[in-house]
Amino acid sequence: MAQAAVGTVSNLQSREPGPEVLEKVDKVIEAYRGKEGALIPVLHEVQQIAGYLPRCVLRRIARGLAVPESEVYGVVTFYSLFTMTPAGRHKIGVCMGTACYVKGAAALLEAVRSASGAGADGISHDGRFSLEVTRCVGACGLAPVLSVDGEIYSRVEPEAVPAILERYP
């Protein structure tokens, strides 16, 4: 039988940049326009807002800051903290805090990777999951801990992972 979630935390984010997101993006660009070295902080703030950096947003930033698009793309692909892929529909977190680690979080992470199909950027090809390694979530007594869309699963054995993920289509 599939394991039940033991609680929730709220960390959902929007996936497509809608007009309100683009408006915020423009505000960030406006705040940095004409400043030296603006590109990286702008990309950073915009990613916070939009969740990722799609083409249309990168083009907006390039035009807004008068930086060639090739350079913007170069920076985004150079630093692993930037991503051009939208987050998956469901967000998986694997805790790598000391307690979870000691209780076998590494094996759990591997199991989540293979069950979710997450690529190097943590996002599965079908856009279903994005996988993130988190720091201690403060549930050490329940280690190792896995969270999906904020729902916390405790003392997860690697074999239990596929059944948990099946609940998130």
């Binding site: 990168l58 060639p68 698009e69 090739s70 350079e71 913007v72 793309y73 170069g74 692909t77 150079f78």
Partner: peptide
């Protein structure tokens, strides 16, 4: 980039995946 001011091509990615080309 410097002579023509077009910057149609640039560096992208890093390490083994490093490439030169358009955005």
């Amino acid at each position: 980039r410097d002579v023509q001011g077009v910057a149609a091509i640039g560096y992208a990615h890093r390490g083994i995946e490093a490439a030169v080309g358009p955005a």
